[in-house]
Design a protein around this nucleic acid. Sequence first.
RNA 1: GGUCCGUUAGCUCAGCUGGAUAGAGCGCUGCCCUCCGAAGGCAGAGGCCAGAGGUUCGAAUCCUCUACGGACCGCCA
Length: 577
Amino acid sequence: MNLFADIRALVLTSLDALVADGVLPDGLSRQAIAVEPPRDAAHGDMATNAAMVLAKPAKMNPRAIAEALAAKLADDPRIGSAEVAGPGFLNMRIETGVWAGVLKAALTDAGFGRSSLGQGKKLMVEYVSANPTGPLHVGHTRGAVFGDALASLLEFASYDVTREYYINDGGAQVDVLARSVYLRYLEAHGQDVAFEDGTYPGDYLIPVGKALKDKVGDAYLDKGEQFWLQEVREFATAAMMDLIRADLAAVGIRMDNFYSEKSLYGTGRIEDAIQTLDQKGLIYQGTLEPPKGKLPEDWEPREQTLFKSTAYGDDVDRPVKKSDGAWTYFAPDIAYHYDKVERGFDELIDVFGADHGGYVKRMKAAVAALSDEKVPLDIKLAQLVKLYKNGEPFKMSKRAGTFITLRDLVDQVGSDVTRFHMLTRKNDAPLDFDFDKVTEQSKDNPVFYVQYAHARINSVLRKAGVDVSDATLAAADLGTLTHAAELKVAKTIAEWPRLVEIAAKGHEPHRIAFYLYDLASDFHALWNRGNEDVSLRFLQEGDNATTQAKIALIRAVQVVLAQGLGILGVTPAEEMR
RNA sequence: GGUCCGUUAGCUCAGCUGGAUAGAGCGCUGCCCUCCGAAGGCAGAGGCCAGAGGUUCGAAUCCUCUACGGACCGCCA
C-alpha cells in the first residue's frame, strides 16, 4: 500500500465529484497534481497543490477551489481535517487509525514498499564493464555498487531487470595484456624480463604466467607472437574475468550475463548494425573538423566512415571506421546496443565511469537511431572517488601498480561499509572515502547508525517476553500508539513506498540510503524518549497489549530497514559487536 | 574553443523533478547518565541557495549569460 498514492486517488475522485456538481469545468489535466508530505509538520500530514494547479486552466480562484475540495475530502473517514492555507494549499490531517493500517501492511503484506512502476517491463542495467586487463579498482567499485543497487531498486519497483557486463575483449588492450602475461610466462621459466611502456607490470599477472606455463609447458618459448598471441590472449582474458568475477562476488554482485565484445567480430553483427544505420541515411564518408582549441600536433584531415550522430543531438558526427578501414571502438558498441534493442528490452541503463562522459551523447544517439527512439537509454556516470586515510589524501598511481583495488577496500572495511558509503552520495558528485571514518562506530557514520537501529530492534524482540510474530503484532490494537514521537515513526514508514517510487523513477538509489538514515534517526529518537518518559519504552511490563502495539511499530521499522538495506546490498545486522 | 557535471550553514552533504518560514551530520554554545544498549540525548546560534537577468500565482529547483572547480574532446578502449 502506498498511502500517498491512495490519498492522491482520493483527491482525484473528489475533483470528479466537483466536476459532477458543476463546480469545476471538465477535462482539466491532472498530471501536475501532487500529494506530498509538507515540509513543516505543523501544516499537517499531507498537502496537495491541486487547487493551485487547476486554478489557471479553470479560470478560478485557487482558494475557492481549495475550499470546495476540502469539503469533499472531509467526508472521507481517513481525513481528519482539510484546511486551506496560503495561496491555495490544502493541508490534510490523517486520522490516527490510518497509520495503524500502514503498520499492519508493513508487517503482513510482503509487497509493502514495492512499486508497480515498472509493470514488468524488461530493463537492462549494464554496469562495471571494466576492461579485462586487471583487478577492479576503486573507481570501478563505485560504478559496480551503484549499478547493482540501481538494478535491485528497479526490481523492487517491478521491472524485469537484467544485469549485464560488457567485456571489452576485442581491442588492442587485450594484446597488451597477452604480451604482459607472456612476460610473466617467461619469468615463470626462470628468465629475466623487463616491463616496458605498453605492458602491465602488476603482480596479479604472476600467477597467470605460472598457470600458462603449467598449461603449455615450454611450447611458447623462443617463439614469435604469431605463434602464441591469440591463444595467450584468450587464456589471459579468461583468467582476468575469473579475477573480476571473484572481485564482484566480494561485494555481493552477481551478473546475469557477461557479453563479449569479441563475439561480435566476424559474425556480421557489426556490419548489420552499421547497415541498419546506413539504411536510415545516417552513415556517410566524410572528413571531420579538427577539434578546436588545443590542436593535436599530428592532425591531418582524413576521410572516414562516419555516423551522423548530430541528427540525434550529438555535437559532431562520430567515426565508426578508422581511415585504414578498421572498426573504431564505437562500432562494436553500436552493435552491442543494437543487440540489446533486438533482445527486446524496453529500457536501457548504462553505468559509465566519469572518464566516459564525452561518450554519452553518441551512445544515446546510436540507441535512439537504432530503436527509432522507442527504447530510452539513460546513462549514469559514476564520479571519482577520492581516498583518504587519517584525513590525508591517498595517492594512487596506476603506472607504479599502486592503485587501490576493490579487494583492498573490502579487506579493510568490508563489503557492507563499502557499499553503503558509496551509495550515500549522488552518482554524479565526487565522493570522499576515508578508510578511518567509514569504519567508525558512531552516529557520524550512517552505515553504523542504520545497522545499529536494525540490531537494536532485534535486541528488543529478543527480550520482549511476548509473542512477537508478525501476524500477532499486526492483530494487536495499535490505537495505543498516540504519542507524537510514535506517530512520527509511523509516518516515516508510510513514506517508504512513495520514496521507492521516486528513487526508481529518477534512477537514484542514494535516496534509499538517505531515507534509511532518516528512519533510523526517528527510531533512535523514539528509543531515547523512553529514557525520560517511561510510557514510551517499548517493553511495558505487565501490559502485553501495549507492549505488542509498540513492538509492532518498531518491527515495522525493522521490516523497512531490511528491505532498504536489501536494495543497497547491505546486510541487516542482527547484533552489533 | 566545445561538451558534460558540480557550486546550498565554518566543514561534509540532502533537498521528494516548480510549492509555504531551505534541512541533516560534524564543529560551536547550553543543559541531560541509578533509566529497555549514553559506542549518546535534548535545545540553541549559524544561509544573499556562486552572481546577474528571465519565465509565473510561486524558483535552490526551469531558461539565458557570467565566475569558479572537476571530467572529457580524431585514426586509445
